[in-house]
Simulated assay, not measured.
Amino acid sequence: MSEFDLLDTESGNAVVVALDHGIGMGAVEEFEDPATTLEAVLEGEPDGVLVGPHFARRYSDAFTASDADVLVTADFVAPSSQPGENVGPWVQTPAFDTDRLLACDPVGVKSVLAFGRHDRRAFERNVDYISALADELDGTGVPHIVETVMWGKEIPARFETDARYVANACRIGWELGADILKVPYTGDVDSFEPIVSDAPVPTMVLGGPSSGSVRATLDDVAGAMAAGARGLIVGRSIWQTEDPAAVVAALRDVVHRGASVESAWG
């Protein structure tokens, strides 16, 4: 049995669909109607869905009717102060207190630790927040999921999945109190395996912007699982597809049954 309910599955892994994008990005394409997108995702029977606490409250009936666990996002992260625009500078701040988060009875609370900022004070506030939230969740039984990302302009986009950067970010993440890491896949098993094995906490992979290819997403997830990852927390690469339920089902085959990409997706 896993230390955490999130990973208390037959395989010990989890397929989680991220649907928290509306908090900072607004009505994202293919997520304009939250009820419809949620319904399509739940049809695929994911192990969990990551949402904002008020989303969880407003759509509680849908979650109750499904077997999916709820995970909640703790902070507001937006690419701009202009709603729905990606023009910078990006904004991050704590958005919900711990009582509000825990009222959702979640199996995980996620926050973002973003590297590469020009603004040192903003990064310091981010570190303070991550460590404080870890302390507040300690002893509750709800794991703190820290998403380590290289979003700041001081890190060129080509290095966002660089193994050295990802390894260092993961180390900092769990040293600050992460119970579970949500990280970029580095692109191959050989470079990702040491990152996973060196971390004393479970590692799950994130999705980022949709690649437009379900097979590419499945290939990355299969590689991450072969390296020892415990599953995924992915959003747009699932619900910006023609059939989100089918994609979730394929991911379940890969993550829980070790199926090949070819057999999972045909």
Rank of each mutant, 00 (worst) to 15 (best):
P46L: 12
W174L: 04
L133Y: 03
S80P: 09
K110L: 11
V146F: 05
V51Y: 03
P156I: 08
R230P: 03
E262L: 06
D219H: 07
Q82G: 11
S60M: 11
V16Q: 02
V196C: 07
D8T: 14
P53S: 09
W239V: 04
V183D: 01
D67I: 08
L38F: 04
V127Q: 12
V196I: 11
H256Y: 08
S2L: 10
L6D: 02
F115Q: 04
V91K: 09
D99V: 09
L101P: 00
G173P: 02
T140H: 13
G266F: 02
V247L: 04
G258H: 07
T140P: 09
E39F: 05
F192L: 10
G26P: 06
D220E: 10
F55S: 01
T148F: 01
V87K: 14
A157K: 14
V146I: 14
A68S: 15
F31H: 13
K153G: 02
Y185P: 00
V146D: 02
V49Q: 01
V91Q: 14
N168I: 06
E45S: 13
D20G: 05
G152S: 01
P244C: 08
T98C: 11
W239D: 03
R117M: 00
Y129W: 12
A114T: 05
S197D: 12
V146T: 12
S2H: 12
E154C: 11
I195G: 04
D33F: 14
A78Y: 07
N126Q: 12
Q82S: 15
D198R: 15
G26Y: 09
P34Q: 11
L137P: 02
F159E: 05
R57M: 11
V127R: 12
Y129Q: 07
E32Q: 15
V107D: 00
N86C: 11
A40P: 01
A178C: 09
E242H: 08
D20L: 04
V196F: 07
D119L: 00
V261L: 06
G173T: 04
A62P: 00
A78F: 07
F63Q: 03
T217M: 10
G88V: 00
M204A: 09
V221I: 12
A227G: 10
V254D: 00
A163Q: 12
T93A: 15
L6C: 14
Y59D: 07
V41P: 00
D69A: 14
A227F: 03
A199E: 03
V41H: 00
E136K: 06
T148L: 05
V183E: 01
V221R: 00
F63D: 03
D33V: 14
T9M: 13
H21R: 12
G223K: 02
V41G: 02
P94R: 10
G52H: 03
V91F: 08
G212L: 13
D33R: 14
L113M: 13
D128I: 05
G228Y: 02
Q92C: 06
T9I: 13
Y129E: 08
D33G: 13
E175Q: 15
